[in-house]
Design a protein around this nucleic acid. Structure first.
Lengths: 153, 153
DNA sequence: CATAGTATCTCGCCGAGCGAGACACTCGTT
DNA sequence: AACGAGTGTCTCGCTCGGCGAGATACTATG
């Protein structure tokens, strides 16, 4: 970005990666708008679907921490999702201060329409790679994550 | 957060890629907050720095289209950036309806503090790859972009 | 010229998210 | 058992980013 030297492999890759993240953001934004969801609501839905998939108990507090929202903002997100029928709130019988969040079938279906085809295509793409290619791609992604993590402080 | 053991290589890669984009978003958000910028202002700044780097003339209209903001919102973004000294507005002498946007030295420096180290590390990482590995990574990124583009409609 | 088209800005409004605080509940201490 | 501290969630009032509508200034075309 701050380097003008054209066509060094490293810079080309940086550019490709950045373009890809921008495209993914645009895709998410387009999907959100088409389904009358705010970007934050979509992020929340993704987090809740993840939790449901891994069997983790989701609560407003956890969600708010994940989305970097304070409690008031979290309540507002949940109100919107509940109003749109993507979410059910139930009191935790073991700790009656807590609220358990349950995504509805409708929300799961919505998530599948969004992620399903893209994931399927990506899996097909990855399955078409040779073992060496797969190793290179996975190594790159892993290295990038630790690298980004090191710059977040 | 949700590092479950994904069964197939394809899914594992999908997960890694998604985690990476989330981490990059978090990095950007953290940087924005530390510099008293709104996420949109940072996106605008990135777009303007890109334009400056490629020698493209930046105008409010172009920027607004890129950021998916209407004209009122675009004006507000530019007001904020100008107020913070990241931007100068000048009338285009050839078409006096238009306003030309010029990032200040301060903004360029800010961009370098943000992107510089991360880009340098990424370039170093990519430079350390064998030609075959590099080809695999670039091929993957390119394929993903066309794949995402196909799903955006 | 007049008229249509274009680039930008202003005004009034909506609503996402914040800070402060209320309320309900749990838990350790006494 | 009763109290206080700590925790999870929600309510209230507010700020301010972004939108729709329209004003303003300029260019292009007949």
């Amino acid at each position: 970005m701050t380097d003008q030297l054209p066509d060094r492999p490293g810079l080309r890759t940086v550019h490709q990666l950045r373009a890809l993240t921008v495209d993914l953001d645009l895709l998410a934004a387009a999907f959100a708008q088409r389904n009358r969801l705010h970007p934050t609501d979509l992020r929340a839905l993704i987090a809740l679907l993840d939790a449901a998939r891994t069997g983790t108990a989701a609560t407003p507090g956890l969600l708010g921490r994940e989305l970097r929202l304070n409690s008031a903002g979290t309540t507002a997100v949940l109100d919107r999702l509940e109003r749109h029928g993507h979410l059910r709130r139930t009191r935790d019988p073991h700790d009656r201060r807590r609220v358990l969040l349950e995504v509805t079938e409708q929300a799961v279906a919505l998530g599948e329409t969004f992620f399903g085809p893209l994931i399927a295509d990506t899996v097909a793409l990855v399955d078409g790679l040779s073992p060496a290619e797969l190793a290179a791609v996975e190594g790159f992604l892993t290295s990038m994550r630790t690298l980004v993590a090191r710059h977040t402080d």
